[in-house]
């Protein structure tokens, strides 16, 4: 019995030392990690909407039911104290899982300024291309007022976006994400 206690105490001490050591390392790395995440978020925002002076997360105000549906965040970009643009974080469902992406609109021009796919679980080499510039460029400066439509050939109408070859489901998901954000934008900010 005494042996068991002794061994238990030893194990406890080992675990205690390990815990303290990890606590120390955590106190060193946690601020770095936090700063980095914050920076990533801001640089992501800047990529899709560059003219903002201040960006505020106003999801609580504009998403009263919580993050219901695929809209996760509503960030309002301010210029001289008045809202100038809106950056949405949406998570539509793609082929392999949720696609996390940003969609930004300009209030004055009523256009999409840019979209950016933050993370996706799509098939590498096919759907995963949705994160590449050539695809996100296809959404730039599209009007926010009409429903975007996915097409498989070169687009003819202003509201048409060409799909990624061999990745229709992914393309559909991205368009769905943009359209959902667009609807929210039109009904809340225009």
């Amino acid at each position: 019995m005494r042996d068991v206690l002794k061994l238990g105490a030893f194990l406890l001490i080992v675990a205690g030392i390990a815990g303290l050591g990890l606590g120390y390392v955590n106190s060193l790395t946690a601020p770095v990690i936090l700063a980095q995440e914050e920076e990533n978020k801001i640089s992501g925002f800047q990529e899709v909407y560059s003219q903002a002076e201040e960006i505020k997360d106003e999801s609580a105000k504009y998403l009263p039911d919580g993050a219901d549906g695929i809209v996760r965040e509503v960030n309002v970009a301010y210029q001289k104290g008045t809202p100038a643009g809106v950056i949405y974080m949406v998570e539509p469902k793609g082929y392999g899982g949720e696609i996390q992406m940003l969609v930004a609109f300009d209030i004055a021009t009523k256009e999409i300024t840019a979209i950016k796919v933050l993370s996706n679980k799509e098939t590498p080499g096919l759907g995963a291309k949705c994160g590449e510039e050539f695809f996100s460029e296809r959404f730039q400066n599209k009007s926010a007022e009409g429903v975007l439509e996915l097409v498989k050939q070169e687009p003819v109408g202003d509201n048409q976006v060409m799909a990624i070859t061999a990745a229709t489901i992914t393309s559909k998901a991205v368009v769905e994400g943009v359209n959902t954000a667009r609807e929210h934008f039109v009904s809340n900010f225009l």
Partner: peptide, 8 residues
């Protein structure tokens, strides 16, 4: 608040 001990 010791989520960092998760693995252990």
């Amino acid at each position: 608040e010791i989520e960092y001990l998760q693995t252990i």
